[in-house]
């Protein structure tokens, strides 16, 4: 999917690889497992610095959990950069996983078909957070705060490139803001899992 929208994806497992990217996607997976590897391989601080510099970071599912400042009672390592409170496994177990259409005006008129897998939800957002998408009952499932993007669901599973194009645009704009940076986008999936 990333190649189709014109990005050059690389997988990031170490701080050295992280330093070379223009934007970062933190994919789905288990946030506990990814968090431990972020700590063991000393990626948490470089990640925070990268966000501080204004590089775009997109967290899907587990990635969004790791970006959140608050995940309630769970104690686990977090990047903690986004002013949102996220609830893990909010819809239940695998049997409660589902697909549905959600309107996301930023992606155009056609609703986004979203796949939720043991998904988290956003319980509360700070004043600087823009809500991009909600379920019919008002549950927040897509958010943006400056250079940070968060989705409860998995846009990489449906073949609809609009979220990827939207994030690529964030990367391009961030590039333009940095002085004459080269336009090549390198969009990695972080740690162990990779997006296709």
């Amino acid at each position: 999917m990333l190649r189709e929208v014109g990005a050059e994806p690389v997988e990031v497992r170490t701080a050295r690889q992280l330093a070379e990217v223009d934007g970062l996607i933190m994919p789905g997976g288990e946030s506990t497992a990814i968090g431990k590897l972020l700590v063991s391989y000393e990626l948490l601080e470089p990640l925070k610095a990268l966000i501080e510099q204004g590089r775009p970071v997109w967290g899907t599912c587990a990635g969004m959990i790791l970006l959140a400042k608050d995940i309630g009672p769970h104690r686990q390592p977090l990047v903690g950069a986004m002013d949102v409170r996220v609830r893990r496994n909010a819809f239940g177990r695998q049997l409660d996983s589902f697909e549905t259409d959600i309107p996301v005006p930023q992606m155009g008129e056609e609703p986004v078909h979203a796949v939720f897998i043991r998904a988290p939800l956003v319980e509360d957002v700070g004043p600087d957070v823009e809500v991009l998408g909600k379920l019919e009952d008002g549950t927040i499932v897509a958010v943006r705060q400056g250079n940070l993007l968060g989705t409860s669901f998995h846009p990489e599973l449906t073949g609809d490139p609009r979220f990827h194009l939207y994030f690529l645009e964030m990367v391009r704009n961030a590039d333009m803001q940095r002085d004459n940076a080269p336009p090549a986008e390198r969009l990695p999936a972080t740690t162990s899992a990779s997006l296709s």
Binding site: P27, E30, Q94, S97, F98, T100, V115, H154, L157
Partner: peptide, 19 residues
């Protein structure tokens, strides 16, 4: 809303990749 689809079933395995 459709529950427990092919995509959610195969998709969970996708999330476990590399683990």
């Amino acid at each position: 809303v459709t529950m427990s689809t092919e995509l959610t079933k195969k998709g969970l395995a996708q999330q476990l990749k590399g683990g």
